[in-house]
Write a protein that binds this DNA or RNA. Structure first.
Length: 254
DNA sequence: TACCCGTGGTC
DNA sequence: TGACCAAGGGT
């Protein structure tokens, strides 16, 4: 849920989710459509499908227990470098570097003296954070958590609060006088209004709200432009978020 | 590698 | 008010 989604938006949904599905096995026993419906409008609904598939894999391959090895975690659907390491470090106390967008920004400023972080790059990110971790297991976990928290609350993207930063006396960027970003600007996010993403979201919203399959005409009614609507529907079918056909109707995956 | 994938809040 | 940004992953 936390992948590319602000923490404050996740917390209430996570609480509901864990009350309904307290274990991987309980989620695995429900149809994927229930997961997509419960996901509601958290965004990136493929994550709901991935989380359900992950629960199935954990139940089948790991006896219902979330694995603690980074390599085993990485093999699960929807779990990449960040999530695997976050689970290993925070749930199991492993001494592994955890690097998300917040940590990358803190490392860029405090260690490298750069105003903005580089694009995610495991070969650069992980050894750099590894070098910051103290030997003690508990201290290493706190360092991982502290770097993320610092980036989320103090060393923020737009207006960093250097006046209250605990690293102010040793931050390479601050000590250099907070130089401007040198390199090319990261490409700006594409507009959502009128995008394929929006059309996918609209189709999925209708499907979540319906207990019976939607007719092709009902799907067509959500967006006026046929080519874009067809493209969005085709991509949802490809992703497994929608099943069915024009003849039998469209529904969420069982 | 670069691009695609939601949604809502902030300044 | 529209661009920016958010505990990334898959291809």
């Amino acid at each position: 849920m936390l992948q590319q989604t602000p923490v404050v938006r996740v917390i209430p949904r996570l609480a509901e989710w864990l009350e309904r599905w307290p274990t991987p096995a309980s989620l695995a026993a429900s149809p994927a459509s229930d997961a997509v419906r419960a996901w509601d409008r958290l965004g990136y609904p493929r994550r709901a499908l991935n989380l359900h598939a992950c629960a199935v894999a954990i139940t089948e391959r790991h006896g219902g227990v979330v694995p603690s090895d980074v390599s085993e975690l990485l093999a699960l659907p929807g779990i990449g470098d960040y999530t695997a390491r976050a689970i290993a470090a925070f749930a199991y106390g492993r001494r592994v570097p955890v690097v998300d967008t917040n940590v990358r920004r803190v490392l860029a400023r405090a260690v490298e003296g750069l105003a903005e972080p580089w694009a995610p790059n495991a070969k650069r990110d992980l050894p750099l954070m590894e070098g910051q971790l103290p030997p003690d297991l508990d201290d290493a976990r706190d360092t991982n958590a502290g770097a993320m928290e610092l980036g989320a609350l103090v060393c923020v993207a737009r207006t960093p609060r250097c006046d209250v930063c605990p690293l102010a006396d040793r931050c390479a960027w601050l000590l250099a006088g907070r130089p401007e970003h040198a390199g090319p600007k990261a490409r700006t996010q594409k507009k959502y209004e009128g995008s394929d993403r929006q059309v996918r979201g609209l189709i999925l919203r209708e499907l979540r709200a319906s207990d019976v399959p939607l007719t092709a005409a009902e799907v067509e009614s959500v967006w006026g432009e046929p080519a874009q609507r067809d493209r969005a529907l085709a991509s949802l079918l490809r992703d497994g978020l929608v099943t069915g056909s024009a003849d039998e109707g469209y529904s969420l995956p069982e």
